[in-house]
Design a protein around this nucleic acid. Structure first.
Lengths: 216, 216
DNA sequence: AGAATATGAGTGGTCAGACCACTTTCAAAA
DNA sequence: TTTTGAAAGTGGTCTGACCACTCATATTCT
């Protein structure tokens, strides 16, 4: 009768339980034997659901202690995915484009918001640009955060990892000009220019990445 | 001694096996009992590894038949998103905005592509608009498909469901004008206008929805 | 009394064996 | 030749049993 996979139901049930019981990250969830009994399923079936949740980084299990709601998002998911999935070029392209799509949207949102576009964060970035080494990812992440859309931020975070962390590393001297253009345009709330400059940077980054050889 | 999770080892072993045996997408992999024996692990332990792989969309299991390498090997990411991005109470607003974000990007992509923007699909839509009843969703879905980004399409599909299927129902006479404007702009490859018109329609739709009472 | 130790309950990790429901295959019966 | 059905093989589930580990408690030793 019930065609849906059992363990997926359990995944949903556990999620609902967490929500109802108001269990917070770091908290312990009931033991496997307990859960199995209340949900009327065998322990091995329940464990299949738990393994799924664990692989996604949602829970953390410690032998002898228990199972806990994870507080830091685990990255094992991405490792597994990257080793298996990304073979054909279309996937790569889709992921890259979709990530870029979210970034562009974030920039547009920021430019439309006077408060966000005039943030003092940008000044601090400017300082870093001159003096210290500068992590690319910090810049883009800040854009995503300031856009105010948390869902978009999370999707972006996943896509970033999924496309092999394209922002790893620090900015080179070649990139500083790009960054400055982008920052200026944002401060002037000139969305069109900001997006164009960002796209140029992205394109440059992609070529750079290919030049240095990209991992599978 | 062995601190690493057993089932993760198995995941790796399975991956290696697939590589060595040159199993291709769609092919069948050895049965659970067989795998368990050759890998010297219990069947339930092996199954925990398989469930993880299945949740990621890497394999596909069919009762009575066997386990197969998934042939649509990309975009499993989306299922992942559904389970852990949307677990906490994301505001309705974020979901709506993110969906809109993908739709707007799709329109822009289509407008930049001469072939897509001149598709005969639009003519057929025009005809429907005049005569038959017209499903809102058909229109938007077509946009997403024609954008060519399959990942974006799947994310959109999910977001649509999570925002309570905002496109349910047929277009009313009030909306026909909106649709016509959008179609015209697309055919003229005028992205700016197309997006503006689409946003206007979206806004109208949102208000309409609130007026009629929306489910969570 | 205080510190070191031993114990036991509880937990996740693993395994073996047993059914069940289902699909495929192929030989026997029509 | 076609139909039928029995058997083998598959994933799905459950049970009960150990193991390894952690932690709180009680016990013993100094």
């Amino acid at each position: 009768m019930n065609q849906t996979k059992r363990y997926l139901d359990i995944v949903r049930d556990i999620r609902d339980m967490i929500r109802q019981e108001k269990i917070k990250p770091g908290d312990r969830i009931p033991s496997e034997r307990e859960l199995a009994e209340t949900m009327q399923v065998g322990r091995s079936t329940l464990r299949e659901a738990l393994r799924s949740l664990e692989l996604l980084g949602l829970i953390e299990t410690r032998r002898g202690e228990g199972t806990f709601l994870s507080d830091h998002r685990n990255h094992t998911l991405v490792e597994v995915l990257s080793t298996f999935v990304l073979q054909d070029n279309q996937s790569h392209k889709d992921v890259w484009e979709t990530r870029l799509l979210h970034e562009v949207a974030a920039i547009q949102t920021i430019c439309q918001n006077e408060a966000a576009s005039q943030m003092k964060v940008w000044d601090s970035f400017r300082l870093h640009l001159k003096h210290d080494s500068f992590q690319r990812e910090d810049f883009v992440r800040e854009l995503m955060v300031l856009s105010g859309n948390r869902l978009s931020l999370k999707i972006w975070f996943l896509l970033k990892q999924y496309s092999g962390n394209p922002y790893d590393g620090t900015v080179t001297s070649d990139e500083i000009e790009h960054m400055n253009h982008i920052l200026t345009a944002i401060e002037q709330q000139d969305a069109e220019t900001a997006v164009r400059e960002f796209r140029a940077w992205d394109e440059w980054l992609q070529k750079e990445r290919i030049r240095n050889g990209n991992d599978s």
